[in-house]
């Protein structure tokens, strides 16, 4: 079980007011489940994910994995805890001058597996899980994007973690490769009972993979629901962002629009001329301005 308790992460922004990337988030992720975290760019979902393994240390709040409070550990304790938390990234983050098998061995080396033969054997096992057995001596540059992500998954799995954090794991991949990678993640969850947390802006990923969904906006989790609800007839998320995310995606008006209908610049100018609303903060957590533009654009396209 992963438990985030009132986690906030603020970033200093020079002389301006600090930016709250994660704002008082509490989230319980049952052991062995797949949790999806979805939201637009800048919603704070990646920061929240990085809060789980403390790559980004929360400014306040507690992070628990099982019976361990990660936020209460010293540097050495945290390092040890991280051996049990795998992570994969949008950009794969492999070491380019190491072969596939050497990359996977790296996580074992960091986890303190000293015997080279044991490292090699366990790396080979992990690569077998993601069906990369014939390219183990290749370098990352010789692999496709999907293969690189599978190597990254093997690297994360080699230490037999309890948790796998996935930061936009398929955002750099085409739909077919995405499906393949997601299938591996689903298999790993089913076979080893690893708790998987996936951050994404692609609703398809959530629909296909997640057990539970958390929708984020402006640093907050604004709603949560079981992913099976998405398949239910008549289900509609309560927040506008949730609704948008479950909609069929981008729909454009292909008829040449007149400037009065969708003059985005005019809309933005009008809002800017009106100035900030009374008492508005420089950074507006409700995104009133964005929402107005969004609504106006939506109206214009209809």
């Amino acid at each position: 079980m992963i438990s985030l308790r009132r986690v906030s992460t603020t970033f200093a922004a020079g002389k301006k007011e600090p930016i709250a990337a994660v704002d008082d988030v509490s989230l319980e992720i049952p052991a062995g489940s797949i949790q999806g975290i979805i939201g637009f760019s800048g919603a704070g979902k990646s920061t929240l994910l990085r809060n789980i393994n403390l790559l980004e240390r929360p400014t306040s709040g507690e992070v628990w994995i099982g019976d361990t409070e990660l936020t209460g550990l010293n540097a050495e304790g945290l390092r040890r805890a991280r051996h049990q938390i795998g992570m994969i990234f949008q950009g794969f983050n492999l070491v380019n001058n190491l072969t596939v098998v050497q990359n996977v061995e790296l996580s074992l080396k960091f986890a303190g597996v000293k015997d080279p033969r044991q490292r090699r054997r366990r790396a080979a096992e992990a690569l077998e899980i993601v069906d990369i057995t014939d390219k183990t001596r290749n370098y990352p540059a010789q692999l496709s994007g999907g293969q690189k992500q599978r190597v990254a998954i093997a690297r994360a799995l080699a230490t037999k973690p309890q948790v796998l954090l996935c930061d936009e794991p398929t955002s750099a991949l085409d739909p077919f490769t995405t499906a393949t990678v997601l299938q591996y993640l689903a298999d790993i969850n089913a076979e080893f009972g690893i708790t998987v947390v996936v951050v994404t802006h692609e609703m398809e990923v959530i629909k296909a993979l997640a057990d539970n969904v958390a929708v984020m906006e402006a640093g907050r989790v604004v709603e949560q629901f079981p992913a099976t609800d998405l398949l239910r007839e008549g289900f509609s998320p309560t927040t506008s962002i949730g609704k948008y995310l479950v909609s069929d995606g981008i729909s454009l008006n292909r008829r040449k629009h007149t400037s009065s209908e969708t003059d985005f610049d005019a809309i933005v100018d009008e809002l800017d001329a009106a100035g900030p609303e009374p008492g508005a903060r420089p950074w507006d957590p409700t995104r009133a301005r964005e929402n107005k533009i969004f609504a106006a654009v939506e109206g214009g396209l209809r």
Partner: peptide
């Protein structure tokens, strides 16, 4: 990227520099 991945894997600073 690779440094971040190594930190996530629980590497020490020395390990990140060396490996």
């Amino acid at each position: 990227g690779a440094v971040e991945a190594s930190r996530a894997m629980g590497a020490t600073r020395g390990q990140i520099i060396r490996h």
